[in-house]
Design a binder for these strands. Structure first.
Lengths: 344, 344
DNA sequence: TTGAAAGCGGTACCAG
DNA sequence: CTGGTACCGCTTTCAA
């Protein structure tokens, strides 16, 4: 049963607690912040008063007064995307463990929203690669997943792509098509620019894995075997339409995103192809939907939840001025399921 | 390119702007808050100063000083659940439109987390039905989706269930199994209690729709035709295993959640059954995965995004002391796709 | 070990 | 129409 609002708890303040404990507000503050030099007895008295009153600090006031806070915020372009959800889930676990509050906000909304300003750190998930409004400089430390920042967490996309290609190649495929996520980029120009400037970009690195794997297997990379999507299922369908209608269509597809891969499988099925008998498909990410699909999707796993955890730990270390090194690139692994087989 | 942190913009204050504009801080404040009675010329001068300096209000200061804030927080048990994601997505759109900041937090973490205390309103998505810690009384208005609160947004679950059953019945099915979501409840006892006390509960209402539809079609409700899941795919699989292995298995399933329905379909397929030829399946919710599945899932649509929008509008109205009525129950609609057909 | 005073950056209220 | 004053709830600094 919902406890009917008591006459509005009337915002307890430090002073209220202090009075109740018979000490000065300052002492209460010290206790709360775990400062040294408070007699055990006094501390206990304050603790009791806090417990009895149910007092909780006002983060705004604390922040204003220049104190630290234990809030980390996550900025993500959209809430209902599985990729981000996984990372956030991981971060949430770590936050709870470290006793930080995690708040998630959609980026884009009111540029860098008010709340980010008062968080001890910011986790950017798939931030726009163009950079942000310089004016809205983030005040606190920022680490990013799949995007640029001072502390980018990176995953071995290139290695993952090679894993996928290796798998397909070993199975005996030679006509391997590729669906990239480059369309999701601001444009091909940006992608090319990123490549030139040596910037790593998830979509681009996967493409590189494809190209180089083909090359080292002695296969030519046919331009018509490469299509670009934007990580949505629909874009995967479009790309697959093109690929599978080619005069000599590929016998296998390496798709750099699970949702796109699913789209490709469905298109194949609509075209009367059996997966994996007539067409093998490997995805990328290992989102929950990959395991839930039929046939279950063979895919390259990124440890998204772990990355979320690592991001949070890094942020907290940064916030607390503890030494911390940027984690090395996260490894990817091939998860073999039912969508791949030797060409028939 | 990321703008390298300029030597810390050194937090501009209202005073800085005031000086630059040659007015008092108060006037700047008034301009910023769109107060009446500021001469156009003065206002413009202030506006210019703001633009030139790139000043932005400090939200904590504003809040502390008793000014309203434009923050709504969402409390949801888990971030990576499609149901909640959809609602949040809808709320996010409305928030942006109304110029509020939306922050999402996982409930459970540090009871009702610090930030909720200072938001203008709280949206609870699928809160635990047992109620909350009385001590952590939410200070602001709270509306809920799929759970209790002072302002619960409800959807016509009963009607939706009837829609689904009607569809199946019209197709000619008589042996219709049901998978409920009641297992997700604290227990059957709680569910029974809710039923007695007249409380509406999504899972329970759908069950009622099933029972009454069967009854009014002159069908007996066989106890073994009713299984309970917890809205996860795995639980749907378990329930379907039982149902489809019955001596005389149902020819149709009404499953009160899309993920569970998907699980049921997969079990059926593993058992050599064709969907919809040998088994029809109707889901509930119309999550994105319903449309993405093969066969695409016939399901009862809840307008989740709209509910998120409505929730936000209600919250904002409440926060701004505008009159507002609780929306009437949201309608559900049957989305016919590929998972249902007449029994063969 | 504890407390008093000052102020963080705004806003409310009321006087000019 | 504009500006002075008090104060939001907390932490900092420094004295007792």
């Amino acid at each position: 049963m919902l406890s009917k609002n008591v006459p509005a708890p009337a915002a307890l303040t430090l002073n209220d607690v202090a009075q109740r404990a018979g000490v000065s507000p300052m002492t209460v503050s010290n206790v709360i912040n775990g400062k040294q030099g408070v007699r055990a007895a006094t501390r206990q008295r304050v603790l009791d008063a806090i417990a009895e009153t149910g007092y909780r600090v006002n983060p705004m006031a604390r922040m204003l007064a220049g104190g630290r806070n234990r809030i980390i915020s996550v900025l993500t372009p959209q809430m209902n995307q599985p990729y981000a959800s996984e990372v956030v889930q991981g971060a949430a676990g770590a936050a709870q463990r470290l006793d930080y509050d995690l708040i998630v906000m959609m980026s884009g909304s009111s540029d860098f929203s008010v709340m980010t300003q008062l968080s001890a750190g910011v986790l950017l998930i798939q931030p726009p690669s163009e950079g942000y409004d310089p004016r809205s400089d983030l005040p606190s430390h920022v680490v990013s997943v799949d995007g640029p920042s001072d502390y980018p967490l990176i995953v071995d996309n290139y290695g993952g792509a090679c894993l996928a290609m290796q798998h397909l190649l070993v199975l005996g495929h030679t006509r391997i098509g590729f669906i990239s996520g480059l369309q999701a980029e601001p444009g091909v120009i940006a992608a090319a620019h990123a490549a030139q400037s040596g910037q790593r970009n998830d979509a681009h690195e996967r493409f590189r894995g494809y190209r180089e794997s083909m090359a080292s297997a002695g296969q030519r990379v046919l331009p018509e075997y490469v299509q670009h999507g934007d990580f949505t299922k629909a874009s995967g369908e479009r790309a697959a339409q093109v690929l599978l209608r080619l005069p000599t269509p590929p016998t296998a597809l390496f798709v750099s995103g699970d949702a796109m891969a699913l789209g490709a499988i469905h298109v194949a099925q609509d075209l009367g192809l059996q997966v994996p008998k007539d067409l093998s498909v490997v995805g990328f990410d290992d989102l929950p939907l990959a395991a839930a699909a039929r046939p279950a999707l063979t895919t390259v796993r990124q440890p998204l939840q772990q990355m979320g955890e690592a991001a949070l730990e890094l942020l907290v270390a940064l916030a607390e001025h503890r030494p911390m090194v940027l984690p090395t690139p996260f490894p990817t692994t091939l998860i073999q399921r039912e969508s791949t087989a030797s060409p028939s």
